[in-house]
Design a protein around this nucleic acid. Sequence first.
DNA 1: TTAATTAATCGTAATATTGCAATAGACAAA
DNA 2: TTTGTCTATTGCAATATTACGATTAATTAA
Lengths: 118, 118
Amino acid sequence: MGLAKSELFTNNQNEIAAFAKVFGHPARVSILQHLFKINRCICGDLVTVIGLAQPTISQHLRELKELQLIKGTIEGTSVCYCINHEKWKSMKNVLTNFLNMDVSNPLNCCGTDKKQNQ
Amino acid sequence: MGLAKSELFTNNQNEIAAFAKVFGHPARVSILQHLFKINRCICGDLVTVIGLAQPTISQHLRELKELQLIKGTIEGTSVCYCINHEKWKSMKNVLTNFLNMDVSNPLNCCGTDKKQNQ
DNA sequence: TTAATTAATCGTAATATTGCAATAGACAAA
DNA sequence: TTTGTCTATTGCAATATTACGATTAATTAA
């Protein structure tokens, strides 16, 4: 199918998945790291820095823009992209909450004497 | 192509993407939340709780197992799954480092007087 | 042994993702 | 206006993902 049955899940679960999904490609990770590093960037830079074709970079930028994690400002013929700090902060909250899940009893719940299925 | 050019990126970038990717589906988010909540789970439970078919759940469990975020122990005819806390902790480190990126100057790098490209 | 239970695997259909060449659109410079 | 520069969009090919019915494999119970 290729299509997640999102109606089976809570808004929070779908939101976590949506943010995680956009980080699920190293090019987008790399783009974000670059944007944080230089705090200003145009698309052409990224093509050189990353080594993917211009339409590919543009496509990855669009996915980041759709989640509002970055914003772009037109400057003449080029576009200046930068991190949307407010959105980044709220995304970080959502994901950090998920990553910080913990159990009352952190001991191994499965018997170590049993056969490990893997 | 559908295939990421992972050779263009650092090990760290690929690792971040791999972890994020596995969280990029709400079913896997839900499975992990359930495992944290009850600290012990058999596959059949998940099929009931989540509402996807058994082969689908099994497939999602395999992806989580491949990254060693969970482990399964055979108990009779069923399999007890639980969080691999050591791996969860190291994954959390990797992703938290990424999410905690910050810039020296958190001000908007793009002029607000310019046209917003979106 | 036979039957029942449980989870993994296989096979397949539908859809999504990745990547890029070609093109289009927007702007600046000449 | 024309030309050059930069980014977005379109269209497409290759591959990946999601989901599930059917089956298999492993174990337990009768």
